[in-house]
Design a protein around this nucleic acid. Sequence first.
DNA 1: GCCAACGTTGGC
DNA 2: GCCAACGTTGGC
Length: 165
Amino acid sequence: MTASSTRSTAHEPHYWLMKSEPSCFSIDDLKKAKIAPWDGVRNYQARNYMRDDMRTGDIVLFYHSNCAEPGVVGVASVAGEAYPDHTAWDPHSEHPDPRSTPERPLWYMVDVAYVDTFAKPVTLRILKADPFFANMLVVQRGQRLSIQPVEKRHAKRIISLGMRK
DNA sequence: GCCAACGTTGGC
DNA sequence: GCCAACGTTGGC
């Protein structure tokens, strides 16, 4: 084990669920963009996941929230490690925060790359109805965190459900 | 549109 | 450090 190997060698990807309101940024928007910064996160826990725990190649379950059929609609991947969210110090952005400056960034983001859109969305209703998913964060009452770690077994099952015609 | 649950703010 | 008030999230 060399000093550089901890981060630079291939590792088991981690799995994440990332929420977006489709009226704001949908999986179709990501498909068109191919790769996009996940900006605007203004929650410390979600920031910490992006800044401290996400690695290039991690798998993202793209979740549509606050819409008619909330649920996982496709797959993306983390395209690079976190960097300062410059929209925070832009007073004209959607989520300005004057506490964050280029010298002392408060908020961070990662780039996310489009991978695939599910043939059939795996809706929150489906997840809640299946005991296999019972301890996923997203099905817990009152869970609002917009970026959540997901167990590999849950991610694998959701992806296989979603890909099924 | 309603509203419960949550995270943050700020007075004390 | 407590906690009430407030703004936000997000399912329904």
